[in-house]
Amino acid sequence: MEHAFGPYMKQLREQQGYSINQLAEAAGISNSQISRIENGVRGVPKPATIRKISDALSVPYTEMMKQAGYIEPGSATELQDVPEWATYKDRRDFKKMLEDDDDLMFDGIPLDEEDKKRIKDVLTGLFWEAKQMNKRKKTDESDNRP
């Protein structure tokens, strides 16, 4: 599936009055890379590059990821209730957990779609709670080092 990410990015850049050089500097990537993306020479950049561009343009990361084709609109992986503190790696881990295609079963019987959704909703809350606790734990450990 071909995505029109380059023209989308160019439109955002121009709407905000940035030159290619200004966006490149703000995002910490080369101006030639910006130009190649916008002109379709480079294609869709990696999520880490999209993160830098979205931060520089103050555009929601998920919106740019949808436009790039990494996230299907309306899918469970759209990452709707993602905490602000979540890193790209956290989001990737979460997406991987939700996309696991193994059948969910209870007592050897596959669950229907409604039950799967309810379980995934519960898992979503638990996942982000556990991630946040781990981040606090790491911060506390580093604070206690001599």
Rank of each mutant, 00 (worst) to 15 (best):
R91C: 15
F94D: 04
F94G: 04
F94T: 01
K95A: 14
K96N: 13
M97I: 07
L98Q: 06
L98E: 05
L98Y: 10
L98A: 05
E99M: 15
D100L: 05
D101E: 13
D102Y: 08
D103F: 11
L104Q: 00
L104C: 01
L104A: 00
L104T: 00
M105A: 06
F106D: 01
D107N: 09
D107I: 00
G108Q: 03
I109E: 04
I109N: 02
I109Q: 06
I109V: 14
D112N: 08
E113G: 06
E114R: 06
K116Q: 08
K116S: 03
R118V: 00
I119Y: 07
I119V: 14
K120D: 14
D121M: 13
D121E: 15
V122C: 02
V122T: 06
V122H: 02
L123P: 01
T124H: 02
L126M: 06
F127I: 02
W128S: 07
W128H: 02
E129N: 10
E129G: 09
A130S: 08
M133P: 01
N134F: 07
K135L: 13
R136C: 10
K138L: 11
K138G: 04
K138I: 10
T139E: 14
T139S: 04
T139C: 01
S142M: 12
S142R: 14
D143R: 11
D143N: 07
